[in-house]
């Protein structure tokens, strides 16, 4: 399902490259450094990705944080689908993985991770899902791309790249684990019907 909005993994010729594979690696490294700085050695901090690509990014960030600081942060994922506010607007969609670390989320710093931040509705849904799993000490948000067009009062604490976009454009985030290649591309044309608004 999520694949639909990314289109062909190799990209149509009309796509404009925003981040190359090397840029993606560098951006993840930079966010990891910022997380280390902001979490100040909090070993109980936990990275929670929003599937599919947010969960992949959370794992990459955890690996980078481990490499740079020697601290191994726990990683998990929370599927926000069941908490979305637009379920009634399209056919029932498939659910994704939810894996909350065994110790739970109570009194821990949670860094929520997603690939693209747009309307903020997915993050809102994910915050609700998190709240049902426990009461984190604080929740921060890390995204690879912030493309604007917010519809809710939500902002990211860590942003890989700010990309001003038009509503009728799409941001394609490609990650090796899911798309066989790393990169971020801009595609003309509206998001296909059935894709969730980020």
């Amino acid at each position: 399902m999520a694949n639909d909005r990314r289109g062909d993994a190799h990209g149509a010729p009309a796509d404009r490259e925003l981040l190359s594979a090397a840029d993606v690696t560098r951006t993840i490294a930079r966010i990891a450094h910022q997380i280390i700085e902001k979490t100040a050695g909090d070993e109980r901090a936990v990275l929670i990705g929003i599937p599919t690509r947010g969960a992949v990014l959370a794992r990459r960030l955890a690996a980078a944080v481990g490499e740079f600081s020697g601290t191994t942060l726990e990683v998990g994922s929370v599927d926000a689908t069941l908490h979305r506010d637009d379920l009634r607007r399209r056919p029932a969609r498939a659910l994704e993985d939810t894996e909350v670390p065994e110790g739970g989320l109570d009194d821990r710093l949670v860094v929520l991770v997603d690939d693209v931040l747009m309307s903020g509705r997915t993050v809102r849904a994910a915050l609700d899902a998190l709240a049902d799993h426990g009461r984190p000490r604080a929740v921060q948000l890390a995204v690879l791309v912030d493309r604007g067009h917010r519809e809710l009062p939500i902002r990211a604490d860590y942003v890989g790249k700010n990309v001003p976009t038009a509503r009728d454009e799409q941001i394609l985030v490609l990650l090796t684990e899911t798309d066989d290649v790393d990169g971020v591309r801009l595609r003309r044309g509206p998001t296909p019907e059935g894709a969730p608004a980020s």
Binding site: D79, L95, E96, E102
Partner: peptide, 11 residues
Amino acid sequence: RLKQALLGREV
């Protein structure tokens, strides 16, 4: 997935 989403939930 639903089983997973409910596992260990407080609510």
